[in-house]
């Protein structure tokens, strides 16, 4: 018997006014996999991410994380179930330092009550110290050890901002990580090293669902690929199968669905 999927998406539909962004998608992600979610622009990949992560709460169908239905849960409750994500249009906290950005990701792991926070008790210093050293390790893990932890994210090169967002997402120790176009705007060297990072994230026991337009990244790191077009799932399989699937090729060449 296959292990219980970490993520299961069943008959999910997302609508914005008259636009059917996701039109009935069904697939599962097994724990420990790196699954690619690809499709042409406007296929509904980000909308599906938004539904899974609790940002879009009005959808039809069912989404489960490790068997637990997410229906009605707001984003922070979904995060509490072990889901983390990055955003296609990087959403770092612009007035917080590099270190503080990752510390926000540590929010749920830091144990401070009101008195600890107000009076900086010994427990406060213990918790903050431990969190800071985890942050340091995470920055190193994502390849940002050269950064000044006090720098503001707006001053960083694009690729570093993407990596910082990944560090923040990992800080909450997710079971499932959604990455929305992490290699966008990167050159060949950068996106190759990003691929290596995604693999090492999986080695930490984190399942990854990856939206990416850079096919070299998708084909080199994914165990499985799911293809959307016009909100529908049109293909699913190993990267090599997807590459030669005529329907997928047609979709990317701008052909009509089906």
């Amino acid at each position: 018997m296959a292990p219980e999927p970490i993520l299961s998406v069943r008959e999910v539909e997302v609508q914005f006014g008259g636009v059917q962004a996701v039109a009935g998608c069904t697939f599962v992600v097994a724990p420990g996999q790196i699954v690619g979610l690809i499709g042409p622009n406007g296929a509904g990949k980000t909308s599906l991410f938004n539904a899974i992560s609790g940002i879009v709460r009005h959808y039809h169908g069912e989404i489960r994380i490790a068997g637990r239905s997410l229906r009605g849960l707001p984003a922070h409750r979904v995060a509490a179930l072990g889901l983390s994500r990055t955003f296609q249009n990087i959403r770092l906290f612009r007035s917080l330092s590099v270190a503080d950005n990752v510390l926000v990701g540590e929010h749920r792991r830091i144990r401070e009550n009101l008195l600890d926070s107000a009076f900086h008790t010994p427990r406060f210093h213990r918790e903050e110290g431990a969190a800071l050293s985890r942050v340091e390790n995470l920055l190193e893990f994502v390849g940002l050890q050269h950064l000044d932890p006090q720098a503001l994210p707006g001053s960083l090169p694009y690729g570093d901002q993407r990596r910082l967002e990944i560090a923040r997402a990992l800080a909450s120790q997710p079971r499932l990580l959604l990455l929305d176009e992490p290699a966008a705007g990167m050159n060949t060297v950068e996106s190759r090293s990003l691929g290596i990072l995604v693999r090492s994230i999986r080695e930490r026991g984190v399942t990854v669902l990856l939206v990416e337009h850079d096919m070299r990244v998708v084909m080199s790191v994914c165990d499985r690929v799911v293809v959307l077009n016009f909100g529908r799932l049109i293909a699913e399989g190993a990267p090599s199968e997807i590459q030669t699937n005529p329907e997928v090729i047609a979709a990317y060449l701008g052909g009509p669905p089906g």
Partner: peptide, 17 residues
């Protein structure tokens, strides 16, 4: 930090738990 994150970006703050 939670307050500052909300001030900067509510969506990203919520997604951070």
């Amino acid at each position: 930090r939670a307050w500052a994150s909300i001030k900067d970006d509510e969506l990203a703050a919520a997604s951070s738990g």
